[in-house]
């Protein structure tokens, strides 16, 4: 029987790449995001490219009071079983601007952490009760250790990481896997101009999407993508705080 999944933040670089990977495998898609016109054009692209039918659901990360209705709509519109939810929406504004302006700080926390928690609370209750399905959230290597240049964004992602750990612990009993994805640099609009697009540490959204799809299939807990970020972050995490605080990272 055909299954469906929800991709929240489907018009982001990683979200669109994930949509293509799953559409090419015949999975039914519910594409969620803020920009309805962009979602429609993604949905049309998947139809022409893979003859894959998908539906579009409007999702505003900051409209917390509408998240419940959003999730119910997703359950209702799923073709076959609703099998999984992927969160890949996010926001990153300049660190210095966020230090100066609390509204920018709050935006990063609310989009990257609060809204993810809000949706995951709903989805986890649904899957726990059904004792099936899976959850996946795209976090960031920035959550592994706070750095002076990016710690507001990083702290929201760190919060998300801890939430996902606890959720994984809780849902293990129900047999519902929870995947934390920690991408390094991905060649999207978010990193354009920050790192050279042809740098060896830069991953294309397609590479990252393939890694994520594989990890979901294998029911992994935490992945770094590309793989070598696990080792880079291991080194960064192991630097003593006394030394770390003096580094400019």
């Amino acid at each position: 029987m055909k299954n469906s999944i929800v991709i929240v933040g489907a018009t982001s670089g990683i979200g669109s790449a994930l949509a293509r990977v799953f559409a090419s495998r015949g999975v039914g898609l519910i594409l969620a995001g803020r920009d309805e016109a962009a979602l429609q054009s993604l949905s049309q692209d998947l139809l022409v490219r893979y003859e894959s039918q998908s539906c579009v659901e409007r999702f505003d990360a900051l409209a917390f009071d509408r998240h419940e209705a959003f999730f119910e709509a997703c359950v209702k519109r799923a073709e076959g079983e609703l099998a999984g939810v992927i969160l890949c929406h996010g926001a990153m504004t300049d660190q210095v601007e966020a230090q100066e302006d609390f509204e920018k700080t709050r935006l990063m926390i609310d989009v990257n952490y609060t809204s993810a928690v809000s949706v995951l609370n709903l989805a986890s209750n649904y899957f726990e009760q059904k004792r099936s399905g899976w959850l996946c959230a795209v976090s960031s290597v920035a959550g592994d250790r706070g750095r002076g240049s990016n710690y507001i964004y990083g702290s929201a992602k760190a919060g998300l990481n801890a939430y996902l750990q606890g959720l994984r612990n809780r849902l293990a009993k129900a047999g519902v896997p929870v995947l934390t994805v920690k991408p390094g640099f991905v060649d999207t609009a978010m990193t354009w101009g920050l790192v050279k697009a042809d740098s060896p540490v830069m991953a294309s959204p397609d590479q990252v999407a393939r890694d994520i799809a594989k990890a979901i299939e294998k029911k992994k807990d935490v992945i770094y993508t590309l793989w070598f970020w696990r080792w880079i972050m291991l080194i960064i995490k192991s630097i003593p705080e006394m030394i770390f605080k003096r580094l400019s990272l």
Partner: peptide, 22 residues
């Protein structure tokens, strides 16, 4: 983005950044 395909005439409609590989 691919935007349309007309199987009756075999006409593909897409954005110009689509590669021949795609």
């Amino acid at each position: 983005r691919f935007t349309g395909f007309d199987p009756a005439h075999g006409v593909l409609e897409c954005e110009a950044g689509v590669s021949l590989e795609e």
